[in-house]
Write a protein that binds this DNA or RNA. Structure first.
Length: 217
DNA sequence: AAGATATCCAACCGCCGTCGA
DNA sequence: ATCGACGGCGGTTGGATATCT
């Protein structure tokens, strides 16, 4: 089975995406959608003599082997990589390395304001669904977005500013029949968040819920 | 300058869903 | 229906680096 993440904005024509202000149905799950190594990568064994998968940072040589493998065989069948590319890495590790660092379409620059806004909007509406977010941000990975969000969250909490900008919350309009679902999702998420959150965040959430229900009356 | 502390992020882990035998 | 292999996902960890004292 080969599943390739679609990096183009995947919302089909005519369909709403979580980024649209006019939102969507409840069941719209979008996505199916310098080297410190001194030992050879070929002879990594545990004390019992059976081959052991290597862990830790990837060396340039390992990267090259993985890249070469994917160029020839394509992405997927990751457990075959260790045989065909002679890499002592488990399939998971190979997949992660490829998707997060070696894919040619990855953006290397920091997140820009537009991307940040997209992430916030998606987080408001869907919560921490990193891979779904990645499908809306070409060239970005779920891991990257997750790290970005966690860093941002800590920063906001440190300086006591709200997680979601007020203007973004007030821009949102949510169909009335979505409110219970949204409330439930938010409640679950916020219960945890609020342990460390600020009163400002609580107020914002209330404003958000009240405005959202009024808009669609 | 040096040690302590904070921050970032690459990589791992465990769980879950899907698929084919 | 069951089981194992595989891949995807979100949470967490720990080493490297930056900043502070």
């Amino acid at each position: 089975m080969t599943v390739v993440r679609v990096d183009e904005n995947p919302a089909p024509d005519g369909e709403n995406s979580p980024l649209d202000d006019e939102y969507v149905s409840a069941d719209d799950e979008h996505v199916d959608d310098e080297d410190k190594e001194t030992d050879s990568i070929d002879d990594y064994e545990n004390p019992s003599g059976t081959p052991q998968m290597k862990k830790g940072p990837w060396s340039p040589e390992e990267d090259k082997r993985l890249k070469d493998y994917v160029e020839v065989h394509g992405a997927g069948n990751w457990n075959k990589v260790q045989q065909n590319a002679r890499l002592n890495r488990c399939g998971k590790s190979c997949r992660l390395r490829w998707t997060n660092h070696l894919r040619p379409d990855l953006k290397k620059e920091p997140f820009n304001a537009e991307e940040e806004e997209k992430i916030i909007k998606l987080h408001i509406r869907r919560g921490p669904k990193w891979s779904m977010m990645a499908s809306y941000l070409p060239g970005r990975t779920d891991n990257e977005i997750k790290n970005f969000w966690n860093t941002r969250k800590r920063r906001k909490q440190r300086c006591g500013s709200p997680l979601y900008p007020e203007y973004m919350l007030s821009q949102l309009s949510v169909p009335l029949n979505m409110m219970p679902v949204l409330k439930l999702k938010l409640q679950t998420y916020v219960q945890v968040q609020m342990l460390f959150s600020t009163p400002a965040n609580v107020i914002q959430l209330l404003v958000f819920l009240i405005l959202g229900s009024r808009i669609h009356h």
